Simulated assay, not measured.
Amino acid sequence: LENVHQWMLGFVKDSPPGARYRKIAARISETMDFMKAIGITSENQPALRENDFFTSHEALLLVYEEALTRVDSTSGDWYAT
């Protein structure tokens, strides 16, 4: 894993963001090792291998659609026009 980190992060190797990344990666590795040691795995805890991910066309076109959003002068409600 350390070799992968060195290869992928060579451009920030000696920078504060690189050091921060290595610290976070080490903490995640420690946490995963601890979870494995106490018997928590993705095989017995489905939440470790699953997640919900939602998207919509509004999110993909947010800048465009935001420009078309207006407040109705009579009701004060927001509308995409």
Rank of each mutant, 00 (worst) to 15 (best):
L1R: 00
L1Y: 06
L1T: 03
L1D: 07
E2M: 06
N3M: 09
V4D: 02
V4Y: 12
H5R: 15
Q6R: 14
Q6S: 11
Q6L: 10
M8L: 15
L9T: 08
G10I: 00
F11T: 02
V12Q: 04
K13R: 09
K13G: 02
D14P: 00
S15Q: 11
P17L: 06
G18I: 02
G18L: 04
G18M: 03
G18W: 03
A19D: 10
R20G: 05
R22S: 06
R22K: 10
R22G: 01
K23L: 06
K23C: 00
I24Y: 15
I24A: 15
I24D: 10
I24G: 04
A25T: 01
A26Q: 11
A26G: 04
R27F: 07
R27N: 11
I28P: 00
I28H: 04
I28W: 02
S29P: 00
T31C: 08
T31V: 06
D33H: 08
F34R: 13
M35Q: 03
M35I: 01
M35G: 02
K36G: 03
K36N: 07
A37N: 13
A37V: 05
I38W: 08
I38G: 02
G39C: 02
G39A: 05
I40H: 02
I40R: 04
I40F: 10
I40Y: 07
T41S: 13
S42G: 10
E43V: 15
E43I: 15
N44K: 04
N44H: 10
Q45N: 14
P46G: 05
P46L: 07
P46R: 10
P46I: 08
L48G: 00
L48Q: 00
R49I: 12
R49Y: 04
R49D: 11
E50A: 12
E50I: 03
D52C: 02
D52I: 14
F53Q: 09
F53R: 06
F54C: 05
T55H: 06
T55V: 04
S56N: 14
S56Y: 08
S56H: 09
S56M: 05
H57L: 14
H57P: 03
E58H: 10
E58N: 07
E58S: 10
E58W: 14
A59Y: 13
L60I: 06
L60R: 13
L60P: 01
L60Q: 12
L61D: 07
L61V: 07
L61N: 11
L62K: 13
V63D: 15
V63K: 11
Y64W: 05
E65S: 07
E65Q: 10
E66F: 14
E66A: 15
A67C: 03
L68T: 11
L68I: 02
T69W: 11
T69D: 02
R70E: 15
V71S: 03
V71T: 15
D72Q: 05
S73Q: 07
T74S: 08
T74D: 08
D77L: 13
D77Q: 12
W78G: 01
Y79P: 01
Y79R: 14
A80L: 14
T81L: 14
T81S: 09
